[in-house]
Design a protein around this nucleic acid. Sequence first.
DNA 1: AGCTGTCATTAGACCGGTCGTCTACGAACG
DNA 2: CGTTCGTAGACGACCGGTCTAATGACAGCT
Lengths: 197, 197
Amino acid sequence: MTTKRPDRDTRADLLETAERIFAHKGYAAVGINEVLSSVGVPKGSFYHYFTSKDAFGEAVITRYFEQYLADMDQILSTPGQDWATRLMAYFASWRASQSFGDCEGKCLAVKLGAEVADLSEPMRLVLKAGTTEIVDRLERAIIGAANDGSSPLRGDARVTAEALYQLWMGASVMAKIHRTLDSLDSATVVTRQLLGI
Amino acid sequence: MTTKRPDRDTRADLLETAERIFAHKGYAAVGINEVLSSVGVPKGSFYHYFTSKDAFGEAVITRYFEQYLADMDQILSTPGQDWATRLMAYFASWRASQSFGDCEGKCLAVKLGAEVADLSEPMRLVLKAGTTEIVDRLERAIIGAANDGSSPLRGDARVTAEALYQLWMGASVMAKIHRTLDSLDSATVVTRQLLGI
DNA sequence: AGCTGTCATTAGACCGGTCGTCTACGAACG
DNA sequence: CGTTCGTAGACGACCGGTCTAATGACAGCT
């Protein structure tokens, strides 16, 4: 009498819950059981949907980036704003997402990047593809800002985009280590400086 | 007839070996046994030298930073160079340390920062203290560069120091994810830009 | 020299949790 | 009515960190 859940729910629940748990505890430190019992799904179901923990992790990260990029696209296409403003809005939302006091900081790329990169090749490739797309969008935004005159582009747009992403990634790690948002404030200041605004 | 090894060797061997293994596989993914058997020390000995895996991890990171800061001090005090040159030499050596093809990238702060920060409070505090000292040194170097005229200081030195460290941290994570040194090149370019040189 | 007390070090048992497998049941739908 | 999809959870093999009990080396004393 399991109330006939439409199949996708279980799978989606697993992915969604795992994202939260991974973002908090990392990948290796979390057992499948923890995710399972947290969702209330028995172990048997897991291997119906996923072939292994690694494949599961891959799916979690894939889903994360899909969602992340969609959100990012939305912020970077706000009508009636110049590109520089849109860029700063993106970073402001990044800052906000880390600010969840406890210890969340929901950015999976930050949390899992270093841990997973030399642990599982498939997961690494998903991370690579995802971060590349993020930098692509930043680059386009920077070029846009140069064109609409909201930022005086000095130097290569690609390099600047990469550096900005790296800066914010590092700032997020430091925020975790210091349990402070100061690092994100520094990043904000320097971001303005780099964009010349 | 155990050839009477002086006690400290075992302990030092464990710390040193663990540093290498942690830098490669992370913290949670590595079992004590792996370190032990890699050094050739029996399991029983471990808890003679350390009270727990966490205390061990703490000691590993502490040792790492001691060494790292000593190296950094040396680079940043090269005689006959202006401060801007010293700074760039430091970042060049950072780049070089990541370049070990395989997957090393021996920077423990980068590898373990995100993973460990919300896993163990003691380890987090060691990371916090260590990274703070690194930024302190960067700040002093930046102020030095402003004073000796090798870099036109624009803006707060502290903020710039923090941003530089974050930038390079993020660049190292990206290097892991993309298995490329490109990110470190971008970081180099932007570092020059931020220092105005 | 022999005996003994003390301490550093080791051996290995212990229990709990890990991932993944496998069989059996139920519910849905043709 | 039977095949498919999904649930259920016991099970095995293994590995994790921890702890107690035994071993060894050595110092001092008689």
